[in-house]
Write a protein that binds this DNA or RNA. Structure first.
Lengths: 386, 386
DNA sequence: TTGTAGGCGTTATCAC
DNA sequence: GTGATAACGCCTACAA
């Protein structure tokens, strides 16, 4: 175990050349070395199982081919999907991923970033909404290392990749409006989060568009867990007994919402319609199957990593946030039937109420066919993003 | 951005000493240096924001203070919980975590490990059940680097940390038996997985104990997703229409099972009782609330990381697998009421069928009070573990 | 076509 | 108390 690593010097010695020559050959450059010498070196190298020492290489090249991933709010499966996709993309580009998870309190953000910087990661990917308000973290991200963030960074200066949550929330709420609902509540994540405020804006946009004035009573805060979402739902029912639809900010919370509605004797969707966010793999199989906004986690990760790598390579990053579209997947929980395309389609009329169990099946694989909207937009204002 | 890092030489120069002296001081050793020189050096160091270069340090010390985490089967939130806890534990011990995710196919196991080894991780934590059958991977784990695995490694020689899934499955099934069920089906993960076979053994143990001969028809395979679990459930209902209870191998799959049962018009728990595995945070809020075996993901991660670090430090690892106990959390989905303690308690009689929504609330925080069983066991045979 | 010199930032050992 | 010398494994010139 922990066997001794073979260095390039041993390879060179065994091949009867200097180690620098061996280095040239093994780095595969188009260097002037006789074919047979090269062949001999290569043969010796892999007979000995030689593998270059990445650490030594990093030292001299001043690059570790590693990116740091700061991850927070892992309660949800969403981040997990993101992290996996990010690592995969990074590896495809020859980079490894060093992770730093944030604890609930989130006061260790600066320490975790410092740890990553100490290890000389080439760049940092911040996927930790709980750091949105952290000025120290924002400063480190801006000054000490190339970075890309998935959430708002106070003061800006850090490229952002996210989803168009405002538009998504608007589409979801609009769908509920079209179904005839006028008293539409929402169970949200923490108000202080940017993504939450974006969604609240979209929700209000859709209401106003329909001539409904949003009421504070209808928006109840939870903390992404099913338990708090259930409590929020009970509060909502108490405040506004006439509510007939709820827009929830995550599928995990939706489980809590459905639970509370069941306890309260309000059948879904007959008495209350529910639309959620994330479209986790299980959403389709809840009873009733859950309508949800599909957030392109994997694609977001891919974009973010690629942006980061380009930024590391010296390319100037985009000034405006990159926002990917979310897509409404309509299933039974809202009683609706057809999904509007990626952006809500004004010409579509309220669909019939019939709903079968097969509605909203996810497509066999990959993303659904494009519907003519661009695959990503660049928002005008950071105020409207994730 | 990407500012130049300050080296110890600069610090030394600014402090008017040689860089070796600065090194001694900054490494905090009990070295003979005059107090004032030391103070001066420290002052300069943090006025300049000096941070030692971990890469250089790793090179000379032949240790990166980094462990590699090979993660597979991330579909489930379970692995996510595990990974977070592992990273946290590692960091608490001054180690960072480099991750390598496996794709579905799982044929890249050796490549991912090689990547980690190339980067000179001090050890590898394998949390990838899909590599159970991979002999090449097993060999690398055995020979090239200290390792700890969460799943079976062919040929042995790699310390194992897991849960006592056989006992857990036995307790769950026994609970169903006590409730009066005699036709108990099971919706499992892939049969080839060790954890699945352990659970099947536990399931059969409990049946035989009750004088019921297990039938092949009652065990239906799925692949951890809700979709396949729903299909498996339909198949089970078709094969054995009289089935009145189902033991499911994960909470995510349980969502699919509940969905299929609802579609088939079989109310839970009135017509069919359901018990699952994992006890994800959402289990309590499904409708009906889901009984589940709580698997101690975080504790498993902690143990595994600590074992790995000790093994890296040269301590001889335990020969037998470390198995942590699982605990049955009884909620509404099986119609039962009281949870047997960590290990099934033979003196307990079948509880009354009444079930309220508050049953099985998780304790306010942390683990439930111990019930006299040891907190970890060491199994006699690898055949019975996870 | 090959070898030599120098350096990446650090720690460790030993003189002074 | 302090500093010089050496080494970790590799790469990039440049000289032979």
């Amino acid at each position: 175990m922990a066997r001794r690593y073979v260095s390039i010097k041993e390879v060179a010695a065994r091949a009867g050349v200097s180690f620098q020559t061996a280095s040239k050959v093994l780095n595969g450059g188009n260097v002037r070395v006789s074919a047979e010498t090269a062949a001999r070196i290569v043969a010796v190298a892999d007979s000995l199982g030689y593998r270059p020492n990445t650490v030594a290489r990093s030292l001299v090249q001043r690059s570790t081919a590693t990116i740091g991933l700061i991850a927070g709010d892992v309660t949800d499966g969403a981040l997990s999907q993101f992290a996996v996709a990010a690592e995969r993309t990074a590896r495809r580009h020859g980079h490894a991923v060093l992770v730093g998870n944030l604890s609930e309190s989130g006061d260790d953000g600066a320490a975790v970033i410092q740890m990553l910087i100490d290890r000389r990661v080439d760049g940092v990917l911040a996927a930790a909404p709980q750091l949105e308000g952290d000025l120290e973290v924002a400063d480190m991200l801006r000054r000490y290392v190339p970075a890309v963030s998935l959430s708002h960074v106070p003061g800006g200066g850090v490229p952002l990749v996210g989803s168009n949550h405002r538009e998504g929330a608007k589409a979801a709420t609009r769908h509920l409006v079209r179904l005839g609902h006028t008293s539409i509540g929402t169970v949200t994540g923490p108000f202080r989060r940017h993504v939450v405020r974006s969604r609240l804006h979209g929700y209000e946009d859709a209401l106003r568009e329909a001539g409904i004035e949003p009421s504070e009573d209808l928006a109840v805060e939870a903390d992404w867990t099913p338990g708090t979402a259930a409590a929020a739902t009970r509060l909502l029912l108490e405040r506004v007994p006439a509510v007939t639809a709820i827009f929830v900010h995550s599928d995990t919370m939706a489980i809590g919402v459905l639970s509370a509605l069941a306890s309260a004797g309000r059948p879904v969707p007959a008495a209350v319609a529910v639309v959620s966010c994330d479209d986790m793999p299980f959403a389709e199989y809840l009873v009733p199957s859950l309508s949800s906004l599909r957030v392109p986690f994997a694609e977001t990760a891919e974009r973010a990593v690629e942006l980061l790598l380009r930024s590391i390579a010296g390319e100037p990053p985009p000034q405006a946030p990159v926002l990917l579209p979310v897509e409404l997947i309509v299933r039974d929980s809202c009683g609706g039937r057809r999904a509007p395309a990626r952006t809500a389609n004004p010409s579509e009329t309220g669909p019939p109420r019939t709903a079968t169990f097969r509605q909203g099946r996810r497509p066999p694989q990959g993303r659904p066919p494009a519907t003519g909207t661009p695959s990503a937009t660049t928002a005008r204002s950071e105020q409207e993003d994730s």
